[in-house]
């Protein structure tokens, strides 16, 4: 019996280790992982003085955010959409093609600004994605990286290690990889994300995506293309262009 005792102990510990591992694995499955993914923008939008349901709320003046912002479209465009996005948030990825469609449809009459608002720790890779996009931005290719990260969200959001995936995107869009790696953890990149976050907080952004049109928050339910399109058109018309 004495000779078998150590082997019994070892087998018992192996069994306990496997049981603990299994238990830990199952314990997290009920966690509300979509807690921050459900856009609460429409609920937190606050009082809306406009009579039309779904119309943007009043203009809010707040911190400027990262300067210069990542923007597409002319600075003098009559309508500016400012999106606070999290690259790992599914509704943000769904909004991405909608914004692209609006850009195509309205052309030079629409300007789109993207602000970083990674929801950490709910989205474990959101900050890495924001850093990757900002690092690409330092080489003038923010939007290419932004588009790749959103378009391929499903292929990286569950990965354990996203760094090589984003590096592959960086290579694909022709970034200098050594510089990209250095920039990922640079103060400039961290500052930009911090400043965008500061602006988001000042504006009362609590969920993603949150979109402001000419400084007024667009309720989440109005971000569907069939609702966003007339809102932009009405804004352009009100500016007489």
């Amino acid at each position: 019996m004495k000779r078998a005792l150590p082997f019994l102990i070892i087998v018992a510990v192996l069994g306990i280790a496997l049981a603990v591992g299994w238990s830990l694995m199952r314990s997290g499955t009920d966690a509300p992982i979509a807690r921050y993914e459900t856009p609460a923008v429409s609920q937190i939008a606050g009082p809306n003085p406009a009579n039309t349901p779904g119309a943007p709320s009043p203009v809010v003046v707040a911190d400027a955010g990262a300067d210069p912002p990542h923007a597409e479209g002319p600075a003098n465009a009559p309508v500016t959409l400012e999106e606070f996005g999290d690259f790992q948030c599914p509704p943000c990825a769904m909004l991405h093609p909608v914004i692209k469609t609006m850009e195509k449809e309205f052309g030079a009459r629409l300007r789109v600004i993207f602000r970083e608002y990674p929801l950490v720790p709910a989205h474990e890779h959101a900050l890495s994605a924001a850093r990757a996009a900002e690092a690409a931005g330092l080489q003038g290719k923010f939007w290419q990286m932004h588009d790749l990260i959103y378009t391929n969200q499903n292929s990286w959001k569950s990965a354990f290690d996203v760094r090589p995936i984003f590096e592959e995107y960086a290579t694909r869009i022709g970034l200098n990889i050594d510089r990209y790696r250095q920039d990922l953890t640079s103060e400039t990149v961290q500052n930009r994300i911090f400043l965008d976050g500061k602006r988001a907080r000042a504006l009362g952004v609590k969920g993603t995506p949150t979109v402001f049109m000419n400084g007024r928050e667009v309720p989440f339910e109005s971000l569907a293309p069939e609702k966003l399109r007339p809102l932009i058109a009405a804004e352009i018309a009100s500016r007489g262009k």
Partner: peptide
């Protein structure tokens, strides 16, 4: 388990868990 489950590990004493555990060396 946290790796296999794809969950993020929360650091309570230091703050670099996600950087380390999502690095290429993990």
């Amino acid at each position: 388990v946290e790796h296999v489950a794809g969950r993020s590990v929360k650091c309570t004493i230091v703050s670099g868990c996600s950087e380390v555990l999502s690095s290429q060396y993990a």
